[in-house]
């Protein structure tokens, strides 16, 4: 098990450790020898174009798919062998919307709380607190169907935090949102790292979501092309910016504003 230094200098097991992971759909190899680790209490970006393998990797981390080659550990707990211990340390925001549209916000969140063994009274207290923080207390009993895309995403983030996980995974969490909602969500998640010591693993294809202080892992065609602090990755590529480094590494002609091809 790999140990890494946290922000406060303490030696802790890696929040997420992926070693030698391969995955294929039939004959099609989608992930090849993926290895990296992310430190606790850090914001780590998984940067890759559509089809790079980000969602497959997330499916393996969350054990929607089984890891047949390699190992994945969450705070030292092997996802395959100690699935429950690993998953209870994980909060997840999937790329696809996963709220039940016919249920209210409260019913959706309460359902999630029960899936983590949190009783009704405790769940209600946490739900009210979280909704107050995202200025959506007045939507508690509204149907999820009546929410905007940005509001749904905020509820999904609140849901992922309901069981107080030390590691938060977000798969393209800002896709389909307007600029304001995107900025709000990104700022909120970054704050969680600082204030609550949560480790965040943020998958995106949008380069402008990467900041200088981030740890970045560049994934392309199922392979890790770069892994390190942004300035290290930029320097190792001989580039002047992360955009240029990403363009060079992934072999695309250019990456326009927003990072979309």
């Amino acid at each position: 098990m790999q140990h890494v230094k946290a922000n406060n200098g303490a030696s802790l097991p890696a929040a997420l450790e992926v070693s030698g992971v391969n995955h294929s759909y039939g004959q099609k190899q989608v992930l090849s020898d993926i290895s990296f680790s992310i430190a606790p209490q850090r914001f780590t970006v998984l940067l890759g174009l559509n089809g790079a393998g980000k969602t497959t990797l997330f499916s393996l981390i969350t054990r929607l798919y089984s890891t047949r080659h390699g190992a994945i550990r969450i705070f030292g707990h092997d996802v395959g062998r100690e699935t429950g211990e690993a998953l209870r340390r994980l909060g997840i925001v999937f790329q696809a919307r996963t709220l039940d549209l016919d249920l209210s916000v409260y019913q959706n969140l309460s359902y999630h709380a029960s899936l983590h063994g949190i009783g009704r009274r405790e769940a209600l207290s946490r739900i009210k607190s979280l909704l107050a923080q995202i200025d959506m207390s007045d939507r508690l009993y509204d149907k999820a169907r009546s929410l905007s895309g940005g509001q749904m995403r905020r509820i999904e983030i609140a849901r992922a935090l309901l069981h107080r996980p030390p590691l938060l995974l977000l798969d393209e969490a800002t896709v389909g949102l307007d600029i304001r909602s995107r900025a709000e969500i990104l700022t909120t998640i970054r704050k969680l790292v600082v204030t609550d010591g949560i480790s965040v693993f943020w998958a995106t294809h949008l380069i402008d979501e990467v900041e200088e202080s981030d740890h970045v892992i560049i994934l392309d065609k199922g392979r890790v092309l770069a892994d390190g602090r942004v300035d290290e990755v930029v320097r190792s590529c001989g580039a002047s910016s992360i955009r240029e480094a990403f363009t060079t590494l992934s072999g695309v002609a250019s990456v326009p504003a927003g990072g979309e091809r």
Binding site: L130, Q133, I134, L161, K191
Partner: peptide, 9 residues
């Protein structure tokens, strides 16, 4: 929005 005190440490 801010979630900083929602989860606590």
């Amino acid at each position: 929005m801010t979630l900083q005190s929602a989860t606590g440490p």
